[in-house]
Amino acid sequence: MLQIKNLQAGIEDKPILKGIDLSVNAGEVHAIMGPNGSGKSTLASVLAGRDGFDVTGGKALYNGNDLLDLAPEERAREGVFLAFQYPVEIPGVNSTYFLRSAVNAVRTHRGEEELDAMNFLKAVKVKMKELGLGEDFLKRPVNAGFSGGEKKRNEILQMTMLDPRLAILDETDSGLDIDALRIVADGVNRLRRDDNAQVVITHYQRLLDYIVPDFVHVLNDGCIIKSGDKSLALELEEKGYDWLIKEAA
């Protein structure tokens, strides 16, 4: 589904990603871990198409096509979803209106019929309940004045409604207490299928107790320095990152 080959990217003249290789197949969950500043969020941003990052080498293929050549909205419509570390507050834009527009943009691209207001509401209310979001949520502007936990649950709600093939979750656990973490993780796990994949970016092992990965990769200084199965995450939890960084050096 996703093949990243020797991907190099940076901001202005500062290299951040220095040759990433990663292969994600349908049905898999990959965790990307690493210390602060290792390039985790940059990788997420580059894959989602955020402005301001220069790709200086390598490539990223999504279902065999050049992902980096697509505009952010084209990636979204093709099934790539980024759950933001810091979801953006958009005062004045009603959550229902926003989410229905997004869902219908993706549906139209897939050749599906647009959801009318009734059917949309019916669908979204079920998902909101699963995520513990109150009904007033739909009347509020997107993320405006939301608590940290509400913002993260909103990301998962959007992800649920857009039903992506490839979901990238950028530090979705940050700022969540243990109850909220469980709700968010359950939401992600409900979406796991044989025909989709998830890339979970996190600093801490804690999230991986709930979203159990098939593969764990450690990113340091813009490169993946070690890959393994879920036991690698436990090892990191116990020993920290330093031993790996020394080993790699």
């Binding site: 979204a76 958009i90 004045g92 009603n94 209106y97």
Partner: peptide
Amino acid sequence: DDSIFYLRTRGLDPSTARRMLLHGFAGE
């Protein structure tokens, strides 16, 4: 720009995103 990017990552094209933000700004 961050707001526009956020909306684009949800599948909305740039003109729809701008329109939505402008409408929201007045809508407030």
